[in-house]
Design a binder for these strands. Sequence first.
DNA 1: GCATAACCGACCACTCCAGTAGGATTTAGG
DNA 2: CCTAAATCCTACTGGAGTGGTCGGTTATGC
Lengths: 156, 156
Amino acid sequence: MLFSTKAEYGVRLMVELGRQPGSAPISLNAVAEAERLPLSYLEHLVAKLRKAGLVTSTRGAHGGYRLARPADEITMDAVVEALEGQIAPMECFHETPEGKVLCSHEDDGDRSCSTKLLWTRVQGGVTKALAGTTLAELVEFSSPGGRSEAAIASAA
Amino acid sequence: MLFSTKAEYGVRLMVELGRQPGSAPISLNAVAEAERLPLSYLEHLVAKLRKAGLVTSTRGAHGGYRLARPADEITMDAVVEALEGQIAPMECFHETPEGKVLCSHEDDGDRSCSTKLLWTRVQGGVTKALAGTTLAELVEFSSPGGRSEAAIASAA
DNA sequence: GCATAACCGACCACTCCAGTAGGATTTAGG
DNA sequence: CCTAAATCCTACTGGAGTGGTCGGTTATGC
């Protein structure tokens, strides 16, 4: 598996929040029941989403969570990265702050890493798919009158 | 990490085999020393590659491994899949023998899975990158007079 | 027949995953 | 003010997968 259930559950959580357009916050309990997911586990996930600035919370009775931004301004690379950590295809694969790609097998004077080409392409494919999908799309897709399956293919 | 070192080591192994154009088999020991990888661990990996029909082996003294096909006829999706198992972005993501994508959250009468759109796109991006890269490319890229870094970007 | 190699299976330490548990804190409503 | 509802926080745990190691068996060239 490329991703664990953290991403799976977390994305579902975000979709659930995006489904309600009202300004009232939604309790985790409501999300847990709607998606049939364990509440106590969702707590861990939503904490990551909050720390990443993707959702806001209001405490106390009638509290809950809201999207921090409109759903069409939330791309899924931010969501998945908040939940799973940095998305790299491989352990040896690091990204410098300037966005340059490094492989730890290169900088020790060795010949250039034979697998770098492959992992770079893979990462490109994943990030393009994630960054090219907004939460709004998922909300629309999952709603009863949502778009057809044909929409799945289009990644651009 | 999307992939473990099994894919990393296994791909290196394949590149090493592809580097020698001679017909003589290459011993695992030679590969292990060239790439500084533990021999006994490589044994497990090469077994998977052999079972997948990607390499052939000859036993006994002066034995070793060869690519089962020319390097430009080996695409990396087969290699990675042999090493890591079926490449699915998510546990709930199954592919039927006919190539149809199923999500286990759909077939129990539920509404269509809200995350299917996303994971389908991600998988598409990954498989496109893997299937669009041949072993021959990696061999050429890693050789001393190999192609420039500019080649990394091109995924088509 | 001996060194060299592929093969095979058992084992092991470690880490991460998925989830539970228990409590502390905050807040709306009565 | 009290209480129920909710977020928040930390610690713990069983299980699975990772990244190896080890010992032994079989096959083969010299």
